[in-house]
């Protein structure tokens, strides 16, 4: 069986959906964050698959940029999670309701 680019598209759409559902359904800030990473990586998979399909390097280079940006986001996001956990002993986003209206 030849694995065509369609399979990669299907896989990355599935991963993206899992990630998006994780963001919407889970309540732990860390798990939500991991789900977002899953979404970013599903896009990376799609980029690499298409870059191979087209024989074009741009898609693969974009993946490197995305990885770098994701690392920067991790640095900021984990710092925020740690600060909040220290004070509240919880990172459940349902507990974060100081503000409403």
């Amino acid at each position: 069986m030849v694995v065509t680019v369609g399979w990669y598209v299907a896989l990355s759409v599935a991963l993206f959906t899992v990630g998006a559902l994780g963001v919407l359904l889970r309540r732990n800030a860390l798990i939500i964050f991991m789900s977002i990473e899953l979404m970013l990586n599903s896009a990376n998979l799609l980029l690499v698959a298409f870059a191979r399909e087209y024989g074009d390097l741009n898609g693969q280079i974009l993946v490197f940029f995305v990885l770098t940006v994701a690392a920067a986001e991790v640095a900021v996001g984990l710092a925020l999670v740690v600060v909040i956990f220290r004070r509240r002993k919880s990172i459940n986003i349902d507990d974060m309701r100081l503000m409403k209206g």
């Binding site: 979404m39 970013l40 599903s42 896009a43 799609l46 298409f50 974009l62 995305v66 986001e73």
Partner: peptide, 17 residues
């Protein structure tokens, strides 16, 4: 913000495709 960036990036990947 990160959630929306993921949508945006997926849109870029599809455009590239």
């Amino acid at each position: 913000g990160a959630f929306s960036s993921a949508f945006f990036l997926f849109g870029i990947a599809l455009t590239y495709g």
